[in-house]
């Protein structure tokens, strides 16, 4: 299904808003993320929990509306993601992702955004991430 030109403009701004949220909340700082993940630490920073809660609550409302509409604002069809079973692949993948996130404090979106700093670590991380994408066999 080919998207209309106006939809691409919205996609661009949705990504801009999404990225702004990550920057405003501090998800783009691996130091901050590591302080959040260090539960029980004297310097524990619980604020990022509120990022997740706020985003989930807002999106839950939007998704519920969209599920009923079944089409986008521009008339193209929408089908919710198909339900899959909880597989060993999902669990193993999540553990591996969690290891990488815990080691570095970076998940994919903030890692991409940190390319803007031009620091070596960001370049290495994103290159390695794409290598990881490639190495994983598609389902």
């Amino acid at each position: 299904m080919e998207l209309k030109r106006i939809q691409y403009i919205y996609i661009y701004f949705s990504a801009f808003l999404f990225g702004s949220g990550l920057a405003i909340s501090g998800m783009t700082s691996p130091n901050k993320i590591l302080h959040f993940l260090a539960i029980g630490d004297i310097n524990w920073d619980p604020s990022l929990l509120f990022v997740l809660i706020a985003a989930v609550v807002i999106y839950a409302v939007g998704f519920a509306i969209m599920k009923r509409r079944k089409e986008t604002l521009f008339g193209t069809p929408f089908s919710p993601p198909a339900h899959h079973a909880i597989t060993p692949r999902l669990l193993i993948g999540s553990v591996i992702f969690g290891l990488g996130w815990g080691i570095t404090g970076l998940c994919p979106a903030p890692a991409l955004m940190r390319l803007a700093t031009l620091e070596l670590n960001s370049l290495v991380f994103v290159a390695a991430m794409f290598l990881g994408f490639r190495l994983a066999k598609e389902e």
């Binding site: 919205y10 808003l17 405003i24 509120f50 706020a54 985003a55 807002i58 998704f63 986008t72």
Partner: peptide, 22 residues
């Protein structure tokens, strides 16, 4: 800031969903 950022993330994702169904 965490709440404000989370709201932007949620709204950005909703905008993508409503405009393009992605």
């Amino acid at each position: 800031l965490a709440l404000l950022g989370g709201i932007c993330i949620g709204l950005g994702a909703i905008l993508l969903l409503f405009s393009a169904g992605k």
